[in-house]
């Protein structure tokens, strides 16, 4: 089952005189295990595309299929449940909840996605171990560096083994070293869990992990090409 399919999706933001059509008939599909890069200038519609793909925004026209199920067709509650199970989100800021420890932040996502408490804990601890953050599991987000926070956010996005991870500028607030570390963590963990990844970014370093690059301009797909340097470029950057 193809994790994500968009068919002729259009979306307008704002109302009345301030309404702006952000997406114009976008069609794309993301296969299992793919690492897709969404590139484009600010305001080109990358974030809106992620929000529509993740079921957060409803398109005016077009269809969005998540694991073969059409979003925005049934009730919002069933969309939400499907999205919680099948999608992981990584935002520009870590957006970890400051009142929870990092372990609890990850556990909460697992629970939202419907994992049993013990399964969520096992998955969360496994991810933290692989990220080298297990010893920090009882700390709160404010006690971590920005890079560590964002790596925890990656773990949160993957705890429930989603079919697809949607990441919006995940390295945008990080220095080059931390940014690379986050990109590596996202690529490696997603690959090991069989999750496809769609990343909207300006960060050229992430391009090295991509299997496909899609350039968005003015709400349309301007170019789309497979990334030839995947893996080798990533290794070189390491």
């Amino acid at each position: 089952m193809i994790p994500l399919v968009l068919e002729d999706v259009s979306k307008t933001r704002g109302r009345g005189a301030r309404a702006v059509q952000v997406l114009h008939g976008i069609s794309m599909a993301v296969d299992a295990g793919e690492f897709v890069l969404l590139e484009g200038p600010s305001g080109s519609g990358k974030t809106t595309l992620l929000a529509v793909a993740g079921g957060i925004l409803t398109p005016e026209s077009g269809k969005v299929f998540l694991e073969g199920h059409r979003l925005h067709g049934d009730s919002r509650a069933s969309d939400r449940g499907r999205r919680a199970k099948a999608v992981g989100f990584v935002f520009q800021r870590s957006n970890l909840l400051p009142q929870l420890t990092i372990l609890e932040n990850i556990l909460l996502m697992g629970r939202i996605a419907g994992l049993k408490a013990e399964d969520a804990r096992r998955e969360a601890e496994d991810l933290l171990r692989r990220l080298g953050l297990i010893q920090l599991r009882h700390r709160h987000p404010l006690e971590l560096s920005c890079g560590e926070e964002q790596r925890v956010a990656v773990a949160r996005a993957l705890v429930h083994r989603p079919r697809i991870v949607l990441a919006d500028e995940p390295t945008g607030n990080l220095d080059s070293h931390a940014g690379l570390s986050v990109a590596e963590s996202l690529a490696e963990l997603a690959r090991s869990r069989g999750s496809a990844v769609v990343v909207a970014t300006h960060d050229v370093r992430i391009a090295s992990f991509a299997s496909r690059r899609i350039k968005i301009e003015d709400g349309t797909i301007a170019t789309e090409q497979p990334s030839s340097s995947r893996g080798a470029e990533g290794q070189a950057l390491k």
Partner: peptide, 13 residues
């Protein structure tokens, strides 16, 4: 508000 928006984005009703 921001944290609540995150919870909702993650799939919490």
């Amino acid at each position: 508000r921001g944290d609540i928006a995150v919870l909702m984005a993650l799939g919490t009703g």
